[in-house]
Design a protein around this nucleic acid. Sequence first.
DNA 1: ATCCCTGCAAACTATTTGCACGGGA
DNA 2: TCCCGTGCAAATAGTTTGCAGGGAT
Lengths: 140, 140
Amino acid sequence: MLLEATLRASDHRMTRPRRVVWDVLNSTGRHLSAAEIVDAVHELDPGINSSSVYRTLGLFADLDLVRESRLTDEASTWEVAHPDDVIHLVCSLCGATTHHATDAVDALRTQLGAGSDFHAAGIDVRVTGTCSNCITRLHD
Amino acid sequence: MLLEATLRASDHRMTRPRRVVWDVLNSTGRHLSAAEIVDAVHELDPGINSSSVYRTLGLFADLDLVRESRLTDEASTWEVAHPDDVIHLVCSLCGATTHHATDAVDALRTQLGAGSDFHAAGIDVRVTGTCSNCITRLHD
DNA sequence: ATCCCTGCAAACTATTTGCACGGGA
DNA sequence: TCCCGTGCAAATAGTTTGCAGGGAT
């Protein structure tokens, strides 16, 4: 119901493409590229045009319902918005992205508030490296 | 001379496009989009093709001479490589990007090394917010 | 009944690639 | 001399936009 409420509150209509895109984003906890979202949407309803998916993602981003991340250098990915003390660990071998909660972000925010004259709104942390699966695989 | 040495060490030739792109990247401390780099290169030598600029940026990235950052959602930007405990503050009003040194990154790296089973290689921190200039401008 | 949102198709733009020549080693 | 890197032009791919009709309110 979060979706419908947010849409109504911002004078937008509840439509089928918007619901389907929302369902797709929520049914996988994963990060999805635009192309993956388009595919998943088509699986649920082949009639929905990809331009509608793009427009919907843009709208959701404006409403802070989803977040676009440039995790890799290849494509940007989308996911349901989450607090920004959840950071991203991106495995450069298998490409898997996991979330990791940390207080380092809060520490940084405090530090910025005190020391610099920059007012921080959002903090994005991306860690590239090797995930546990790939580490153990390398040991074979 | 860092450029020539690095190129030779990796069996690459020193050519005019490579030198010009390197000069452009070093003459501004700023973050430059690919388009800005192409323009600046053309100002120095209109004969250099943009595809060479792209190829050169790719090569420099492979050699860790420069770094591609997806700071904003619009375009990716390039800059001379720097240690990754230098984080980026991006002003969402004027778009200016500044650097900020912090130990929070080291703290995070330590935390990751101890707690999780993810081996961190690189850490990228992007802070969006309002820079001091824009803050004071808002107070008028 | 109104007009927002959609599907469709075309446009756009940034980046990549194939190829033959010229310049660096 | 050798062959890597270049300029050129065409191809590619992801995303955006104009338009007219249909659906949400």
